[in-house]
Simulated assay, not measured.
Amino acid sequence: MSNDLPFFERPDLSPYLVHLTRRSSENGSSAFENLVSILLEGRIEGSTTKKGFIKGSNPATCFMDVPLSSLKYVLNEANTDPAKPRYEPYGILVTKKTAYKKGCRPVIYLSNAEMEQLGIDEDEKWRVVRLENVDGKGINWIHEREWRCKGSFDLPESPIAVLVKDSSEAKNLQKIISKHKRELISIPNSVIPLSILCQGLPYMV
């Protein structure tokens, strides 16, 4: 019996995982520049406890299981505050099949107390995201439906797509890809402007 998920029948499901990039406070690189760097290196570097709220001693690479049409709810006013953005409208899409083969799995949502009660090993704590309540006041990130893999994530040679802010930046990235084709480890099959996909980005004019 097949257990393929019927994506065409379920608007809340997606065959893709999304990794969104943002600016770097360490070296001043923009989210767009970081996206280009990822394509040049063919790798998404894993986040750490210091840089990405990853528990335990191991870094991990984070993705979201969010349908593309719902990214506008992730890129909301609170998450895209220019002073300290949690997310910016740049990123990479990979298929779930590819991600699964490379060790990506849905995270485990647990309270700190539950994590200790279950005796989660230090080496496996990168899998855990804190969940303290579901009343709208406690710590709760379930809506991001996060997937992670341990360490960095090596991209395929041809990722399904990359995401940029608007059509102007899509043209810019296409020029960069054309000019530096021999240098890029990963060349996306398509470049998607999020301003079109999300029918506008009202908080990012």
Rank of each mutant, 00 (worst) to 15 (best):
N27W: 10
W147C: 03
T49P: 09
V129T: 13
I187L: 07
K51G: 03
S186Y: 11
F7N: 08
W147M: 04
K51H: 08
V36N: 06
A78K: 11
T49Q: 15
F8N: 14
W126C: 00
M1G: 15
P85C: 08
P159M: 09
I185E: 13
I185T: 14
L35R: 09
W147G: 01
T49H: 15
F8R: 13
R22I: 00
K84S: 10
L75S: 00
F63L: 01
E146K: 02
P6M: 07
G91Y: 08
K137A: 07
H180D: 13
L20M: 14
K72P: 08
S2F: 10
K165I: 00
G42W: 04
L68A: 14
R86K: 13
P59W: 05
L5Y: 07
P6A: 11
E26N: 11
F153C: 05
K175E: 11
E114R: 14
I142E: 12
P85V: 03
Y16Q: 07
C62Q: 06
N172S: 13
I142D: 05
V134H: 12
K51Y: 08
I142K: 14
L173V: 08
L93K: 10
R23Y: 00
Y109V: 04
D65Y: 02
E183H: 12
G151K: 02
R86P: 00
S167A: 15
V128Q: 09
G119T: 03
P6D: 10
K125C: 03
S57I: 14
R105Y: 02
R148W: 01
